[in-house]
Design a protein around this nucleic acid. Structure first.
Lengths: 176, 176
DNA sequence: ACTCACATACCGACTGGTTGGTATGTTCAT
DNA sequence: ATGAACATACCAACCAGTCGGTATGTGAGT
């Protein structure tokens, strides 16, 4: 595994634990087992690392939720419930292990770093978009009125992000 | 207004905008119009300021939601809806103006500062508790089964916190 | 009435360590 | 021999926190 990947992994872990501003480049390098020279060889700045980490997080989410077996269920309602069950199963252990990198980062930097904020927005809203098709089919199958697939998908993301905050505050896994 | 209050106000604004680690003591002092000496006279450390800011936030929320006219409605369902409407009305302008200080802080410091984390937990969960009575009455009035007032109250907080994140990420007020 | 001992509120220069970032190599596969 | 991938040493700015000092009370003893 390359130094770049090591740094990205370290960023994913440390930022989820201590936030972006609370994680220094030195700490990142120490945790990744690389030197500062390697860091600034691969990333022009700490901000660039933040953008790259958010992008890597998007890919990570795509790989995690793209290949699930629940996608093959012919019933769209079952597909949605399969997604929810899978997410529930992921919520275990320490907050740093199941919490969302993009959600954590965007809280701090939404005003100070537009580049990172946009990368986080792409990650969160992009993931929501991948859910829309199943939601739309499930809505049609059940004849539900009064909501759109888009707003429902965004609502699930809001509940998740908010649940992460509550579990960080309480040290518990209540949000599920 | 005392220097202490000025510092607390500055903390509320700057931390919501840039996060806790991203806000230096110098920046706090400059924004509050006080000196470093005044800061460390009133607060033993930056962490102590964080705790005090979260506590002040709890009081702020109590004052904001404690005296609403919707509380006097005899119908518990209307009381709940009144609360929701009031929260909706608060969500306007920039994210830093309607976003939750406790939710923002606890994301960063939940692992590094137990004292601040506990103060944030008290703020969020304490506010949820104030909603439980109305939720319980509304559940009873409507004959709803399958949920508890506590889990519903926490759910509303999760949706709010998550909505704040989405609006910070998108720069929009979609969460309502 | 006076003053002495003590407390509170605040000032701002200073310190030692940390920060993000840079300059200058070295190693090694092509 | 060239360029990508890394290492080492270093820097100026900034960080949280300290410290000696001033200004303004405040209550007790005389």
């Amino acid at each position: 595994m390359s130094a770049r990947t090591h740094i990205l992994d370290a960023a994913t872990e440390l930022v989820r634990r201590q936030g972006f501003a609370g994680t220094s480049v030195d700490a990142l390098c120490a945790h990744a087992g690389v030197t500062k020279g390697a860091f600034f060889h691969h990333f022009a700045s700490k901000e660039a690392l933040g953008v790259a980490a958010a992008d890597a997080w998007s890919e990570h989410a795509g790989a995690l939720f793209g290949g699930g077996e629940w996608h093959r269920d012919p019933d769209p309602v079952a597909r949605v419930l399969g997604y929810v069950d899978y997410r529930k199963a992921l919520i275990a252990g320490e907050p740093a292990e199941f919490t969302c990198l993009a959600g954590t980062m965007v809280q701090e930097v939404h005003e100070t770093s537009p580049a990172i904020r946009d990368a986080c927005r792409r990650s969160i809203f992009g993931h929501a978009e991948t859910l829309e098709a199943d939601f739309a089919a499930a809505i049609a199958a059940r004849g539900v009125v009064g909501t759109t697939a888009e707003s429902l998908a965004l609502h699930t993301q809001a509940v998740l992000q908010g649940g992460f905050i509550l579990s960080k505050a309480s040290g518990d896994t209540a949000p599920a």
